[in-house]
Structures are given as structure tokens and as C-alpha cells.
Simulated scan of single mutants.
Amino acid sequence: MSTTGQRGSGIAQPLALPSGGRIAVYVGLFVLGAVVGAAGALVQPGWFPGGLLLAVAGAAGLFLGGAQGVGTRAGAVVPAAGWMVAVILLTASRPEGDFLFGAGFGSYLFLLGGMAVAVMCATLGQVPQPDGSAVRLGK
């Protein structure tokens, strides 16, 4: 805190531990991210151009919705982590030689597009703005 009662930058703030309710929301977002990743992996090769767009749009909606709903960038990062875990596990081949992703152009677009959307949504996450008249926001 400064002498005028205003808070400093977000980097200088002490780390606050999330509450139990917020942890439950983050766990739910992680699981939902894994479900969206698995569903996208199944949908994107089925209807190639439309399925790919649907899968990436679903991931974008979840990531941006998580950021807006929680009000922090972690709201986008947590479901993106769940999405990434599901997608990475589905790309690994089994001992029998079976795997879900083919080596096609659409699979690579799904992987790279999902990661790019996750980065964009985490970057666009709402960051609290400083209070006070000394700050020149919107000028």
C-alpha cells in the first residue's frame, strides 16, 4: 500500500490463496477442459472443415468463458491445461498400435489452433484495473 491508500501493480501484490469455492470452480474447469479436448478430438476428423471449426470454437468458448466467469487469467489457463492433458493423452499410441489422431493436416490444425486460442484467451483475461483518480485510464 502506498501512502495514498492505492494498491501497487499486480506484480507487487502478495500471493492470495484461493478459497475452497474457487478451487472447486478450477477443478470443474479443468475437468470440463479435458472433456472439451476429448470431444474435439473426436469431432474434428469426422466433418473435416466444420468439425475442426466446431472443436476449436468450443475450446475458445470454454477458455474465454472461464476467464470471464472467474475474472482472472487462471480461469482460461486451467481449462486450457485440462484440454492439453486430454489431447496429449489421446495422441499417444497404445501398445497395440492404435491411436486416435491421424497424421493429417486437420489434426495439426486442431492441436496448434487449440493452443493458440488458449494463449489468446489467457492473454485477454480480465485484469483488475487500479482505482483512484490519479490513474489516467481512458485518456
Score class of each variant (00 low, 15 high):
S2Q: 00
T3Q: 00
T4P: 01
T4C: 00
G5N: 01
Q6G: 02
Q6F: 13
Q6C: 05
S9D: 12
S9P: 14
S9Q: 07
G10R: 09
I11T: 13
P14Y: 13
L15N: 05
L15R: 06
A16K: 02
A16F: 13
A16W: 09
L17T: 09
P18Y: 10
S19W: 08
G20A: 12
R22E: 15
I23H: 05
A24H: 02
A24S: 06
A24Y: 08
V25M: 05
V25A: 07
G28T: 06
F30C: 07
V31G: 03
V31E: 05
L32D: 01
G33W: 02
A34Y: 03
A34G: 12
V35Y: 06
G37H: 01
A38G: 12
A38I: 06
A39G: 11
A39M: 07
A41D: 04
A41E: 00
V43D: 04
P45W: 02
W47G: 02
W47T: 03
F48V: 10
P49T: 04
G50L: 13
G51W: 03
L52I: 04
L52D: 04
V56C: 02
A57L: 12
A57K: 00
A57C: 06
G58S: 09
A59E: 03
A59V: 07
G61D: 10
L62A: 07
F63R: 04
L64K: 08
L64G: 13
G65M: 11
G66A: 11
G66Y: 14
Q68I: 14
V70F: 14
G71T: 12
G71S: 09
T72N: 04
G75R: 12
V77I: 15
A80C: 07
A81K: 00
G82Y: 06
M84C: 14
M84Q: 08
V85H: 09
V87I: 14
I88M: 10
L89S: 09
L90V: 11
T91N: 08
T91G: 11
S93T: 12
P95F: 13
E96D: 12
E96P: 00
G97R: 00
G97T: 05
D98V: 11
D98N: 02
D98F: 14
L100W: 15
L100R: 06
L100C: 06
F101T: 07
F101A: 08
G102K: 00
G104T: 11
G104K: 01
F105I: 07
F105S: 04
S107L: 04
S107T: 15
S107N: 09
Y108I: 10
F110G: 03
L111W: 10
L112H: 01
L112G: 03
L112K: 00
G113I: 01
G114D: 02
G114M: 01
M115F: 15
M115C: 06
A116D: 02
A116H: 02
A116R: 03
A118K: 03
V119G: 00
V119E: 03
C121P: 04
T123F: 14
L124R: 05
G125A: 14
Q126E: 08
V127R: 06
P128A: 08
P130D: 12
P130R: 07
P130H: 13
P130L: 13
D131F: 15
D131L: 12
G132A: 11
G132F: 15
S133I: 15
A134S: 14
A134R: 10
V135R: 05
R136T: 13
R136D: 14
G138S: 10
K139R: 10
K139T: 13
